[in-house]
């Protein structure tokens, strides 16, 4: 081995190894251990660890609350993904028209995203339990007279509303960046050819911002599945566990019921579901993107 080649290898290792080290320590080891735990029976404290094979997975198949929280999470993901993208895209289109106050407005819509979700949860808990009651008393509308957080259906939509309010601005920013990449001369050419506003939007703008849609759908789906903070701060999974997201469900199993290995099996299943859904989504969307 020549000296220069050796030097190259040492340099390479020096640059890459820190990233590899922390990746291995913080992500890879816990991930592999999660798979290992899911095959064992252990309460997290005792020194005795029993090999369980696939028992944990078999037990999950008849675990009602788990499927209840899975169903809740799927509904939540569908609702937030659609709303956050529809509202984000609408805001982006409107704030790209050249309004006089558009810079201030963009900041205003983005602002909720800057605040942590836990705090957002507490703020809205206050608004829903206090302000809504006052609105109900003031206007006499039955809709606001109830305590939204104590009725399952209402609690679900409270979570969706807060989540959409919180992150619509973020999705707007990504759509705005994509909209600014749409060439003006193309739109002008279409206008000369007689295409109206809606035709321009449908046939030129929307196909050209497909990459942003791929990213936004991916983010919305994976954030929705991973939702934890908001459920934790706003409803604590209640009423009657009706708003318990998968992430919260796993957390409660592991750290309040001390079912370490059982929770690990659920977490591994969670990983399989999430990666399958997002990989399919990205693969399907990528194929439909157009090159400029």
């Amino acid at each position: 081995m020549t000296r220069t080649k050796l030097r190259r290898i040492v340099t390479y290792a020096a640059f890459v190894s820190p990233a590899l080290l922390f990746f291995a320590l913080i992500i890879l080891t816990p991930f592999l251990r999660a798979i290992l735990y899911s095959l064992q029976d252990w309460n997290g404290i005792s020194s005795h660890i029993r090999w369980a094979g696939l028992d944990n997975y078999r037990k999950i198949m008849s675990d009602g609350p788990f499927f209840k929280s899975l169903w809740f999470t799927v509904k939540y993901v569908v609702a937030t993904t659609i709303l956050v993208n529809a509202i984000g895209l609408m805001l982006a289109l409107l704030l790209n028209l050249g309004l006089k106050t558009q810079n201030v407005l963009r900041t205003a819509f983005f602002l909720p995203y800057v605040i942590g979700t836990i705090i957002i949860g507490f703020i809205w808990q206050f608004i829903i339990t206090q302000l809504f009651k006052e609105i109900g008393a003031g206007t006499g509308w039955a809709l606001f007279a109830k305590n939204w957080l104590s009725i399952p259906g209402y609690a679900f939509w409270s979570l969706v509303i807060v989540a959409v309010w919180h992150s619509a601005g973020y999705f707007m920013v990504i759509y705005l960046a994509a909209l600014q990449g749409v060439p003006k001369d193309m739109l002008e050419a279409a206008e000369i050819d007689g295409a109206g506003r809606w035709k321009q939007l449908w046939h030129i703008v929307l196909p050209l911002i497909r990459p942003a849609m791929t990213i936004n759908l991916f983010l919305a789906i994976s954030n929705g599945f991973k939702g934890f903070d908001l459920n934790f701060a706003l409803t604590k999974g209640g009423p009657f566990g009706s708003t318990e997201s998968l992430a919260l469900h796993i957390y409660l199993d592991a750290f309040t019921k001390n079912l370490f290995t059982y929770a690990s099996a659920k977490a591994v299943l969670f990983f399989v579901v999430l990666s399958a859904v997002t990989l399919v989504q990205v693969a399907v969307m990528k194929r439909r993107e157009v090159e400029l």
Partner: peptide, 9 residues
């Protein structure tokens, strides 16, 4: 794509 909850425990 690995959710944090998978590695959390």
């Amino acid at each position: 794509v690995i959710p944090f909850q998978t590695m959390m425990v």
